[in-house]
């Protein structure tokens, strides 16, 4: 199921022409973020860091003075957004991190005009398998990808949402504070 050219768990941000990126934290902080996939399907080739490509030419989605993001990718963002203070994990919507990693609408949705919900199997075409994902968070206690209740069997989108705020399924009953990207 692996697709050649993509490194599932450590995305290789191929289109990486590094420049900048405080952008998306800014989007969130300023509360301006809206899901961009629908806008982007008008222009599915828009690059991840090109805010205006989805949000419109007038949109001021980043804090004033933020470095230019056009043409950038996730690796570039990570150069500044490191550590607990400024990490984008859980702040940057998954649609944006996917875009910034070169994963565009059409790579997940067959029909981008009327996009269908994804099945977990499709996520694994990049993220390999439940077992691999569980390995990645093995250091976490409890490991959300291998809980005593559901093991590695939960669907990704019970927690991870690409077009809206992600949530913590465990917290239906528990009160864990770990970040859900």
């Amino acid at each position: 199921m692996d697709e050649p050219g993509r490194n599932p768990l450590n995305f290789q941000y191929k289109h990486a022409a590094l420049r900048l990126t405080f952008v998306f934290a800014g989007l969130i902080l300023s509360g301006v973020f809206v899901g961009c996939c629908f806008a982007a399907d008008k222009n599915p080739s828009v690059q991840g860091g090109n805010c205006q490509g989805c949000h419109g030419a007038q949109a001021q989605v980043l804090p004033a003075g933020h470095v230019e993001t056009k043409g950038q990718n996730m690796d570039f963002c990570g150069q500044c957004h490191q550590g607990p203070e400024s990490s984008l994990k859980g702040k940057l919507p998954l649609s944006h991190s996917h875009f910034l990693s070169g994963i565009h609408c059409a790579e997940c949705h067959e029909k981008i005009a009327s996009p269908e919900p994804l099945r977990t199997k499709q996520c694994f075409s990049c993220h390999i398998s439940a077992a691999e994902v569980a390995k990645r968070t093995a250091g976490q206690n409890p490991n959300p990808h291998n809980s005593i209740h559901y093991g590695p069997d939960l669907d990704c989108d019970l927690c991870h949402h690409v077009h809206r705020q992600s949530e913590n399924f465990c917290n239906q009953c528990h009160e864990y504070t770990f970040t859900v990207p």
């Binding site: 559901y150 069997d153 939960l154 669907d155 009953c173």
Partner: peptide, 10 residues
Amino acid sequence: MRVPGGNSII
């Protein structure tokens, strides 16, 4: 539900 097990699994 999206998960099996109901109250039994918790």
